[in-house]
Structure formats: C-alpha cells, structure tokens
Design a protein around this nucleic acid. Structure first.
Lengths: 344, 344
DNA sequence: GTTAGCACTCATTAATCTTGAGTGCTAATT
DNA sequence: AATTAGCACTCAAGATTAATGAGTGCTAAC
C-alpha cells in the first residue's frame, strides 16, 4: 500500500485545500494549483486510485473529493508541514504568563481562552490533579460561635476550603490541639488518603488528648471526606457553531450537550500519557464526535504529569497549527510550573 | 384602555396556549377550549380589538395571533395564575441544601443546575459580592524557599488565595511580624479597601518594625491589589438550543456569544434591587435579547442583599412557574445563609 | 503515461402549484 | 345589540419540476 510521490502530493493538497475551504476538491481546481502541472484528467485517475485505497471520498457520485478519516490519519502521521506559528502567536501565548502573582486557576483559564481565540476551536483544559498533592497545612479559622472555615493547603500551593458548623460543646483549646495533631500527623499525606489516615493514625492520639474525642473525630472526618476532582476549564464553546460542518441544529445540540457532560470529557482527556495525541473522528469512540477531532497535550511539573490541555474541532481541523500551539503552550506551562514548584 | 372580562380571558388563554405550544393561536381552536363558549367569529372580533390595543399580533396577514411584548407584560402584571409548584419541585429545590459541610460555590453551582433542569431554560447565578466582605484573617504559608501562598479569609467564610514569590532577602521573623501587623490593622476592613488602607495605616508601622520595609510593603500591596469580581455560575446554556424560536443558527450564535460575555451579564443581573424582576424582550435593551425574557431574584443574608439568581428563556417563557421557583429558591438560599452567617 | 473530449450524475437554486389554517366582512339569527 | 354562519381572500409551508453547473468516469488520440 505504498503511495507514489505524486499521490502523496495530491493527497496533501486535497487535505490542505479542504481544511481551508470546507468544500470538496475537484480535479480541475487541483490542476490549476501551483506546484501541480498535470491535467485534470490525470488527476482524476490518481484520485480514483486514492479513493480506492480509502484515503479520500466523494460526497455524492459527481462531487469533488473529501479526505476520509484514513486520509486525515495519514496526513497527520506523515504529511504535516511542521511549523507555522507567527511571532504574533508566540507572543500572545507568552502573555499568559506575564503576571507575577499567580492565581493558578486564572492562568489555566487564560490558557484556555487564548487557545480558543487563536484557533477558533473549543479548548478544554484539565486542572491539576489536586488529590495526589500532599498536605502542607491545615488551619481552622472560627468565624463565629457556631461556624468555622477549614483550610487545607497542599505542597503545590493549592488551597481547599470548607465551611462547617462547630460542634456546640467544643473547647477552643481542644480545637487547637486537634489541629496541631492533625498537622503533625498528616503533613505530606496526599489529599486522597487523608480520610483513611485520620482513622488509622490520628484517632488514637485524639482519644488520648482530647475531651470530646468522638465528636471531634467525626467532624474532621467529614471535612476530609472530600472527593476532589480536577476542575475543567472551557473556552470557545461557541466556536463550533461557526464551523460549516455543524450547520445542523441537532448535531450542534448533541455536541454541546456532550461537552457539558464534564465527567465524560474529563475522563477522555485525563487518561492520556505525556505528549501530543490526535484522535480523529470515530477514533474518539463516540457517535457524536464522528465529525470532530480532539488533540490533547499535557503539562507537568518536572517529569510528573500534572494536567492536560485539549482542542476540540472539526475533523477538518488545522492540525499543523493546533499541534504547534499545543506544543508551545505545554512547554511554557511546564516550564513555569516547574520553576514554581520544583524545589519542595 | 380597560379590557372587558371576556377580553382578559381570551388574552390569558392566548398567552397560555402560545407558551405551551409555540404556535400562533387561531380563533377556531380557541372556541373549542373548555371555559370558552363562544363561536370562532365572536372570538375573531375580540381578537381584532385586542390586536388594535396592541396586546396581540399576527405573524402574517392570515395567521393566528401571538402575544406581543405588551401582551406578555400585561399577562405578567395582571393575569398570572399564582402557584403551580408540585411537591416534587419543592423537594428537589430543597435537596440543594442537604449537605452539612458547605462549600459555598458548590451550593451556588448546584442551584444553577437544578434551576435549569427544572425549567429547561438557562440559569445564571451571581455569586456573593466578596469585595464588600470584611477581612477576618490573613495567613502566609511558605511552600519552599522561594514561594509562598497568601490566604485571605473573610467574615463570611470566603477564602481567597494567591501564590507569590517570596522576596529573596526576607527574614522569616519579619514575615511573621508583618502578617501580625496586617491582621492587627486590617481586621474588619472590606476587601476592596485593603489596598488603600495598607498604604495609609500599615506602611508607617511597618517602617518602624521591619527590616526590609520597602520590599515587604510592595509585596503585600501587590497581593492585596485584587480586583475581586463576583463569580458567575451558569447552567443549561444549551437549553436555548431546544427552544423553537431559536432554530436560526445565527440567532443562536449571537445569543451564545452574548451569554459568554460574562461582565455584561454580570452587570445586568447585579444591578437589581431585592425581589423578583421580569424583563421582557426589548426591555432588556439589547437587540440580541429581543426574543428573550430575563427573570431575576436575589438572595440575602438577613436584610443585606448578597447575590442574584436569574433565568433566561424565550419571551414565550413559563413565567408563572419560573417566578414560583425563583421565589422558593431565593427564600431558601437566604434562610440557609442567614442562619450560617447572621451572628458575626 | 498523459491528455482531450464527451456523456452522464447529482446537489443546488429558483420557479410554480397545492394545500390548509386562519382572517375580515357581511348578512342572518338570537 | 350581541352573536354566529358563511364566504371570499391571504399567505406560509411543502411538494413538484426545471435549469444550472461543477464534477466524474471512460475512451480514444497523442
């Protein structure tokens, strides 16, 4: 199944052209292109071969050709022209990191926004996996007689907080003691293990030192029972509405509804190893995404993968550009975060 | 411009019917309705009058009638049948508050989701105005030699946090002293005034007690320069896609893009006094919302307004139901929050 | 191996027709 | 005087038909 150079050229031009115009590409228009000096008849012959091999398709008997999924796949794997980021693109990406005071969520959200602006597709960023972060400090701050807020800080600087009702009969001193014990014992424990640990290691200590041991344990266990899932950040959800392949309302509705299924999206994106991944059409294993491609990248701290960035667009996506953008952003995010957190 | 009872009845039935079916209402179908025992001809006469008065309109010369904006306005002001929440609705709303540990954002987000599920419209909830909350406590937690996280807790239990680079030459003791001074001086100050206050009242004290006074002041001033805007929570954005009045793609796109303009939405919703407000079509002063109605309610702590809840739907909205739902949710949210925060 | 030429296909658009729900008006009825 | 039946008229929406043109496959000549 080896393609001749001429076939490769024609395939590449067809894909490029279709990505640009969203219109089926005909033999005549191809023959007029710079870089191709063949008659339309010759091209028709080659296109017939390419179709037989499954790389391109017709939308109806007498239409021009459109890349098939296999065609896109081949294009992505072998025919991508590597680079086309402008200086402008690059400086916009870098502007994400301009501020000195970091609010991590803002950076992530900004990344998503800028990515969707630059590409006109939908961007999805999966926040860091907080639940594997290690506890640095617990603090309890009473607001009034009955209410207090509990604050959990991780080694990465992530802050979780919960409002809770103070058990009515609790001593201020006991509360402080308990917090001290917790900090002493739970420092460095991943958030997801806190609930376990508090029963296994802290319960006993509490019993020895605290008056109302039972109530206190229960209160804190409640607080620590936190199913922390990574937050998802979207931007440019509406960009899909402008893509000509989605002029069908029911398609749009299905797609939008699917995008709003956060857990589902989250799963797809999370379970990717480091590096760039391209899923084309049905490779996404979802009927609704048959006309979509999803390109994912990851960002890390040092060598440890932290979260993911993704772009969702039509299969007729500007693969080359999107991949370059994701590579750049992934690299920059990783660099900034690594610098920030490395030396713990 | 007084309407006869019969005209009121007919207007009400037309609006109710159109809200249900989205189809222009004809004289014949009206005459067949229970509660109306008039011939179609009579109804045609009455409808002609109602049209002359501006309460209903035709979509074309020989079509049935559709409520005009004025018609909806009259309907909302005078003809609403008050109640139609089922026990089911009520218990779903109350399920929002089932959990004991409060993460305020989750409650708000859940409110939005449930509201949009119950109504099939888009719901928008404006989070509490944090910037008027008063500072309760500042804490600095160093993560490593170079980075620390600053935590600000308000009297309402809201927690803000910022990651920042520690000035390289800073003493641990000085840092602690500074934080103490800040807590001493800034307790009870609304967040929005912090930046002012630090220059006016804290700067001098710092100079007296702290070594590297200049650097420290600058660092904290940076941290406190926080433009905290209320967060917006959306749910059911896609519900609009299912409304028959929006089968037009460009309309949908405009609407969706508008919804994504968070500041704009935020302004509209924020500037409402307590109670329920109904804005119909062009009353929203925005071309894109000419076919939409926006119903807003507020939630409070005690007497003080805290935030807003809104439902965005087509002008052909189930006003009665939506208003009842918003009233209920507003009441419950206020009750829960008041109980939680009242006694500061 | 390449190209010109020709018959054929089919999506798209515009033009025409048909149908039916609904109206306004007038004259008859209550 | 209010109500209703009857009739002519209007217009959106859907179906049918026709015209156009971009594009193809195939064959025969180069």
């Amino acid at each position: 199944m080896l393609l001749t150079d001429r076939q490769l050229l024609i395939l590449q031009v067809i894909v490029d052209d279709f990505i640009r115009s969203a219109q089926p590409v005909g033999s005549r228009s191809l023959s007029k292109k710079d870089g191709i000096s063949l008659s339309s008849a010759t091209i028709r012959n080659e296109m017939a071969d390419l179709e037989e091999l499954g790389f391109i398709e017709k939308t109806h008997t007498s239409s021009g050709r459109v890349p098939s999924e296999k065609g896109y796949r081949y294009y992505v794997d072998h025919l991508l022209s590597p680079q086309d980021l402008t200086q402008h693109d690059i400086s916009i990406i870098q502007s994400i990191f301009a501020e000195k005071i970091f609010e991590f969520e803002k950076i992530i959200q900004r990344s998503a926004s800028i990515l969707s602006e630059l590409t006109n597709y939908t961007s999805i960023v999966l926040g860091p996996a907080v639940s594997v972060n290690k506890l640095k400090k617990i603090q309890i701050i009473p607001l009034n007689k009955e209410t207090a807020v509990a604050i959990f800080v991780t080694d990465t600087g992530h802050v979780e907080n919960r409002l809770f009702s103070l058990p009515p009969s609790v001593h201020a001193g006991d509360l402080e003691k308990t917090v001290n014990i917790l900090n002493d014992r739970l420092n460095g424990v991943p958030l997801e293990d806190l609930n376990d640990k508090i029963y296994k290691e802290v319960a006993m200590l509490l019993r020895q030192h605290i008056h109302n041991y039972d109530l206190m344990l229960h209160t804190f266990a409640q607080l620590l029972k936190m199913p922390i899932t990574e937050k998802l950040f979207f931007a440019g959800k509406t960009n899909m509405l402008s893509q000509p392949e989605f002029h069908d309302l029911t398609k749009i509705r299905d797609l939008m509804t699917m995008i709003d299924q956060e857990e589902w999206i989250s799963n797809i994106i999370r379970n990717n190893s480091k590096g760039i991944h391209v899923k084309i059409g049905s490779e996404n294993n979802n009927k609704i995404m048959d006309d979509c491609s999803l390109i994912t990248a990851t960002y890390s701290v040092g060598e440890e993968k932290l979260g993911s960035i993704a772009i969702l667009g039509p299969t007729r996506m500007e693969y080359s550009r999107v991949i370059s953008l994701l590579q750049l952003l992934s690299k920059d995010l990783t660099a900034v975060l690594t610098k920030l957190y490395q030396n713990n």
